[in-house]
Structures are given as structure tokens and as C-alpha cells.
């Protein structure tokens, strides 16, 4: 039977989705490695889903020190030799996964979107060129353990699988493993400025806006719609908008009713910050922009033409 080992990151709300990947490999033995200074809750969470839980409990894991985690986990991987080692492609996942691969020498596959079994081979897909193409790889499952990170939102937590009751094993953290990263401070740069997390209507701007003055076009649309302005990352990096308006995996998570994008390509790092089921309207001049995969309604055209027209029409409604 295949062995799948899930590396559950403490702050990862999508880690249960990794069970969806494991499901493709059923029947398989599911092991889950959990980390923290107190594992009670995550142990409870994973018990029904796993065959075995490996608990790494240590004060250094109070915040998720991926360097420490990788060093304590790697020897276990070398011993267990699971077929597949899974973790989410979150920011900490971007640290943890390749380091595990480097220490163990197991090959790594990053940012998996899909896995399927086809003509006797395991095939995995990932996106390249910011989603412009999909690239497939054959995974040498069974030949060597494979370290794989999975893009959050790409798999679903299985609705129901046979109830399991995991064995729990508290792993010893070796003494020869002194922490090498000293945590000083947690910074929340989106804490200052307008809070758009509760806004019901958002107009999101992206790099289709080419300089700061052009923001006005979107600002006045937002005003007409009685919406707040949201942004993709590049505009925030430029310093044109506050960090608190950045939606996405490294920004805030929003939960609006209406999300209207203007010159946004629709990268998953941006769209990943949208929760719930908002009505999404996209304006982009590239008919192939990935944003149209997320939107309900799309308009292909120049934002500088469409946005002012839309604003006028909305103002006519006299809302």
C-alpha cells in the first residue's frame, strides 16, 4: 500500500485539502506530521482523517520555524520513505518543501494543481508563466519518495472517507538540533490604513493602471459604486496604495458581494484572497487573462474606455 505523508503547517487553513490529493492515491496509508508547542487541537482535528499522526512538540515551534521543522522531520522521512510528501504551497510551504528535498535528496514538485493516474503513470500538472501554460510531469511514484507542494484551493477536502482513528506518536525532538532562526517580531503591515476586509463592494485595480495618476479612473468608479478600492500587489509595492488594500495570499482576505476587477490578470496569489462567493466582474483587454476563469461576467477591452462609461451609467442610476 502507498504511503502518503502530509506535512500540516500550523497556520494553513487549506491543509485539509491535501487529503484530496491523498485520495487520488487511495488505497493508501495517511500519515500526518503536525507541529507546535501545544498539539492538542491539531491532533483532534487530524485524528479522524489519518492512520498515524506524528507530533512534533517543541517551544521553538510556537511560531512555525520551518528550518527547525525541516531538520527534525527530514530524518523521519528518510526512515519512513513515504511515496509522497505533501504540503501546501503557502509562504512557509515555499520554505519548508525545498529544504526537505535538499536534505533528503528526494525530488521536489512545486505548486501542484492536479494529479491523475493515466496509462499506468502518475501525472501531475503545474502552471507556468504566471498561469499562461500548464506543464505536466510524470511522477516517479514508487521509485523514490516525492516532495510535493500543492496550490491552496486546487483540491477539495474529501466529503467523507472511512472514519479512521489515527495512532498518535509524539516524536522526540533531538537535542543536537538547536534553533537557528531567532524570531524577533511579528509585523502586520496591512494593519494600518483602510480596512477593506468587511467591505461589501470592491473595485480592484491591477497593473493595467500604469501610473499613480491613472488610479483616479478607478477611484471615481469606486465612488460611484459606493465601493472601496482594492489592489493587486504590484501597485502596493510601487507605493501607490496602502498595503491594507492589497488582496491576496500576501495581503488581506476579503469577503465582498461584488468584486469588480480593472486591469487585473487574475493570478492565484491575488484571487486567493477572495472568500465567499462574490459576483465577480472583470475588465481586461487580454481575452486570455486568467481572471476570466474566476469572473462571472467579463468585458474584454481597454479599461480607460470602459471604466468611465460604466461610471457614467452607474451615476445615471442615481444610486
Amino acid at each position: 500500500m502507498k504511503k502518503v505523508l502530509i506535512v500540516a503547517q500550523p497556520e494553513d487553513s487549506c491543509s485539509m485539502e491535501l487529503l484530496g490529493v491523498a485520495e487520488v492515491f487511495q488505497p493508501c496509508l495517511i500519515q500526518v506530521a503536525i507541529f507546535g508547542d501545544d498539539l492538542k487541537l491539531s491532533k483532534e482535528k487530524w485524528t479522524p482523517w489519518a492512520d498515524r499522526i506524528l507530533g512534533f512538540e517543541h517551544p521553538q515551534l510556537q511560531w512555525f520555524d520551518t528550518d527547525f521543522a525541516a531538520r527534525v522531520l527530514a530524518p523521519v522521512l528518510l526512515e519512513e520513505m513515504p511515496d509522497l510528501i505533501l504540503t501546501s504551497r503557502t509562504n512557509p510551504g515555499l520554505e519548508l518543501l525545498p529544504v526537505l528535498s535538499g536534505i533528503t535528496g528526494f525530488p521536489a514538485f512545486s505548486d501542484c494543481l492536479r494529479v491523475r493516474f493515466e496509462d499506468g503513470d502518475w501525472i501531475a500538472d503545474k502552471a507556468e508563466f504566471e498561469g499562461k501554460v500548464i506543464h505536466s510531469f510524470r511522477l516517479p511514484v514508487g521509485e523514490v519518495p516525492i516532495c510535493m507542494s500543492v496550490r491552496p484551493g486546487s483540491f477539495q477536502t474529501p466529503a467523507a472517507i472511512q472514519k479512521k482513528a489515527a495512532d498518535y506518536q509524539l516524536m522526540s525532538v533531538p537535542d543536537h538540533c538547536p534553533p537557528r532562526r531567532e524570531f524577533l517580531e511579528l509585523l502586520d503591515s496591512s494593519a494600518e490604513g483602510v480596512d477593506i476586509r468587511k467591505s461589501k463592494r470592491l473595485v480592484a485595480v491591477g497593473r493595467g493602471i500604469e501610473d499613480q495618476e491613472q488610479l483616479e479612473v478607478a477611484e471615481s468608479l469606486a465612488k460611484a459604486l459606493n465601493a472601496e478600492l482594492a489592489s493587486t500587489r504590484p501597485l502596493v509595492d510601487q507605493g501607490w496604495l496602502e498595503k491594507s488594500r492589497q488582496v491576496g495570499t500576501s495581503g488581506v482576505t476579503v469577503n465582498p458581494d461584488l468584486y469588480l476587477t480593472v486591469g487585473v490578470s487574475g493570478s492565484f496569489q491575488h484571487m486567493g484572497g477572495i472568500q465567499g462567493k462574490p459576483f465577480i466582474v472583470a475588465i481586461n483587454r487580454d481575452p486570455k487573462a486568467p481572471v476570466f476563469n474566476y469572473a462571472n461576467v467579463g468585458m474584454v477591452g481597454d479599461l480607460f474606455e470602459l471604466v468611465p462609461l460604466l461610471e457614467q451609467e452607474i451615476l445615471k442610476l442615481g444610486e
Binding site: I134, F137, V281, F292, N296, L306
Partner: peptide, 30 residues
């Protein structure tokens, strides 16, 4: 890992793409 082929993702799978002149598109989106 064995490198297989690349392909374009299915595009516009989800959105209803509005047709017509800008003005017509705007009326539809409203």
C-alpha cells in the same frame, strides 16, 4: 520527474464574456 508536455489552460471557462459595442457591454453588465 519526467517532463511531459505543456498546453494552454482552458480559458474563459467561467465568465460570460459580454459582446457588442462598449456601450452595449456596459448596459449588459449593469
Amino acid at each position: 520527474l519526467v517532463d511531459l508536455k505543456r498546453r494552454f489552460p482552458p480559458s474563459g471557462a467561467h465568465a460570460e464574456i459580454l459582446q457588442g459595442s462598449p456601450q452595449e457591454q456596459i448596459s449588459q453588465v449593469i
